[in-house]
């Protein structure tokens, strides 16, 4: 009985376990033509599985922050301008930055896991460990929350912590990004910076893999 049911399932043309067949992943033009007469019904953009799965490190854009990369402001459009220590205001909201490979003139914007938060605090206020990976008081954390992958964007000066809006996890920036509140299961990853003629340069890879550590 069970065997028979299984046979029927396998025989169906659209069933290819784990894979998405070409016809079922493309939203066809025909859908649009058939529906065009109805109010509000429009064509939908053509979606392919390949658009929806990003792989890490297959090209320079996707590659994770790499030693020697400069940093650029993620919000600035136009030609990449490497950030300097002096571009980072002390004690204020973090600057969201992306790694920039000068050799290939590539901003590594292919993955949101490459986003970094740059913060600057008075050097004297930093513990030895944070100071060691900072460049003149500027230090960097991953911008991706370890809970469910939202962007960590809020600076809470009173707590000296970064906060994620999605479920309010807080990360202590002076204690290696450790979790002080909320559901995040692990520290916010960091990497080291150094300065070269005032320009910020990445001096190490992430200490741990950036992104959500999902349960289950």
């Amino acid at each position: 009985m069970a065997q028979k049911e299984k046979d029927i399932v396998v025989a169906r043309p659209s069933e290819s376990a784990g894979a998405c067949t070409a016809h079922s992943c493309d939203i066809s033009r025909r859908t649009f033509v058939r529906a065009a007469g109805s109010v509000l019904i429009g064509s939908s953009s053509l979606l392919r599985l390949s658009d929806l799965h990003a792989d890490e490190g297959t090209n320079a854009h996707d590659q994770r922050p790499t030693i020697g990369d400069r940093l650029v402001n993620a919000a600035t459009e136009g030609a990449p301008t490497p950030l300097k220590v002096s571009d980072i205001p002390e004690n204020s909201n973090p600057i969201i930055a992306l790694p920039y490979d000068t050799a290939s003139n590539t901003v590594r914007d292919g993955s949101r896991l490459n986003k970094l938060l740059l913060l600057r605090l008075p050097v004297e206020s930093l513990d030895a460990e944070t100071r060691a990976r900072a460049a003149d008081g500027v230090f960097a954390y991953s911008a991706t929350c370890t809970h469910q992958g939202c962007e960590v964007s809020q600076w809470l000066p009173a707590d000296q912590a970064l906060m994620c809006f999605c479920h309010f996890s807080k990360f202590d920036v002076r204690a290696a990004g450790s979790v002080t509140a909320g559901p995040a299961p692990s520290n916010l990853p960091y990497l080291s910076l150094r300065s070269e003629g005032g320009e910020l340069v990445i001096a190490s890879a992430f200490n741990t893999k950036p992104g959500a550590k999902r349960s289950g």
Partner: peptide, 18 residues
């Protein structure tokens, strides 16, 4: 999913999660 086995029968992207 197949109700008896939990095997994927098909999956269709309905929008762009990015």
């Amino acid at each position: 999913l197949d109700a008896k086995t939990g095997k994927e029968s098909w999956k269709t992207p309905i929008a762009d999660w990015k």
